[in-house]
Design a protein around this nucleic acid. Structure first.
Lengths: 76, 76
DNA sequence: TTGTGACTTTTAGTCCGTG
DNA sequence: ACACGGACTAAAAGTCACA
């Protein structure tokens, strides 16, 4: 079901999140706390192992003070 | 869990999808067929009643020949 | 052609831990 | 501070009959 294109997209988004999180000086746990998400889940997303919903991504972006464009940077 | 901001975002995205789908001259059923999704599911997304995952949205966008920016147009 | 409710199956997301 | 796993619960995926 999850093909190569898909997993590459998830990895791309995850990498972007990780980069933005570090730029913000946050740990996975801190980002999880302010976003209302579990620390292990944040880690999974960053590694491209999770397929988050739009709203989850929205909450993460909001707490990283970033926009959709930054999250999807490098795709398409 | 889903607050006002959230449901408004889902409606915004859904509205964008609907607009792009009509612009492409497709019915919900046609878009569903080429995207591998049920037509009722497409309808639910367009009405903002579903909280799709990144990959689901990705598949829809791909078959509408559009980009992330268009899907999120109007947010942030 | 689309809206809607009810539904089952799958997965998003949590919480406990380990190295 | 993070990767990773197992067991769990909430919610998304996916389908259908009918309006």
């Amino acid at each position: 079901m999850t093909n190569d294109d898909d997993s590459q997209l998830l990895k791309l988004i995850g990498g972007n999140i990780r980069r933005l999180r570090k730029r913000a000086g946050l740990s996975q746990e801190q980002l999880g706390l302010i976003s209302g998400l579990d620390r292990t889940y944040i880690g999974g997303v960053e590694r491209g192992e999770r397929n988050p919903t739009v709203l989850t991504l929205f909450h993460i972006a909001k707490n990283l003070d970033t926009s959709w464009e930054c999250l999807f940077e490098g795709s398409q």
